[in-house]
């Protein structure tokens, strides 16, 4: 928290109580050959919202995220970010992948600054921002260290800093904690919430963990088995910051049960 003030100010100021949707997905469809991965998928994401996308493994959630990132194109329908149709990767999007995908020959700080180099942004200015992000993620002591010397959780923190360094307005996260052990995973969820509360990005967080989706999100969109489409939607009205102890409350468990039933219903079909 102490580092929040150190971050370059205006664009990081809380952006709540805001305007309309920042991301609009309309009648989206994706087929790979004969396989229909996504069918008639539509939803919207509000500016500053933390949206969880929940679904079983292999349901096409990652495909959806890659489409929002502009890495693959839809077969039909469209995705709009700030009213502009997505046709390729965009500057205002940052992506955190399932694995940290750090470059092993670069130090932590150099890895975080990698997008700045690719986007040809002024390095000295963003160097400070990178250090602030590392401080916020509590890994600033490791700025000069190579990735192989870090633990899995720390690597994923670096990846989150890298996705935030060019100050995107949307953060896409593709099961970012699925490779971590259960304890680290809980820890990272709390950390991510903290980072999000400081930065107030719009987050689309894809996961197959019901608990993780419920804990982190403002709203959860549930996707069914392939071909994926939205089968349920649930607002998570828990006060923030949420501590991991929230997961033992009856309110939380009621939400989890609701989500589980929605997923099970889709299996039964």
């Amino acid at each position: 928290m102490r580092s929040a003030a150190a971050l370059p100010a205006p664009h990081l100021a809380p952006r709540r109580g805001n305007s309309g949707p920042i991301v609009r997905i309309a009648a989206l469809q994706k087929t790979f050959g004969d396989i229909e991965a996504i069918r008639h998928l539509s939803f919207e994401v509000a500016d500053g919202e933390f949206l969880g996308v929940l679904g079983p493994s292999g349901c096409g959630k990652s495909t959806l995220l890659m489409m929002i990132a502009g890495l693959i194109g839809p077969s039909a329908g469209e995705i709009r970010i700030k009213d502009a149709r997505v046709t390729g990767p965009r500057r205002e999007v940052g992506v955190v992948f399932q694995s940290p995908v750090l470059l092993p020959w670069r130090t932590v700080l150099q890895n975080v600054l990698f997008p700045i180099e690719l986007l040809k942004l002024p390095r000295p200015q963003y160097r400070r921002r990178a250090m602030d992000l590392l401080r916020m993620a509590k890994i600033d002591d490791f700025a000069a260290v190579l990735p192989r010397q870090l633990s899995g959780g720390m690597r994923q923190r670096v990846a989150i800093c890298r996705a935030l360094v060019h100050d995107p307005s949307i953060l896409l996260m593709d099961e970012p904690f699925s490779a971590l052990d259960a304890i680290t995973r809980d820890e990272m969820a709390v950390e991510l919430q903290r980072i999000w509360q400081v930065n107030r990005k719009t987050v689309i967080f894809v996961t197959h963990s019901i608990r993780e989706a419920a804990f982190l999100s403002d709203r959860v969109v549930v996707m069914g088995r392939r071909p994926a489409t939205v089968i349920d939607e649930l607002a998570i009205d828990l006060p923030r910051p949420r501590a991991i102890a929230v997961t033992e409350d009856e309110t939380f468990n009621r939400l989890v049960r609701h989500l589980r039933k929605a997923i099970e219903a889709s299996h039964a079909q």
Binding site: M66, G88, V101, L103, F114, L118
Partner: peptide, 29 residues
């Protein structure tokens, strides 16, 4: 080069020139 590294670079709009010098070359060393 790992497919995910490629994707990562592409989300930051890396050009093929940048991908060659900043990723493929060190990866090949």
């Amino acid at each position: 080069v790992d497919e995910d590294i490629h994707r990562m670079a592409r989300t930051f709009m890396g050009s093929s020139w940048q991908i060659f010098w900043k990723i493929r070359m060190p990866n090949a060393l």
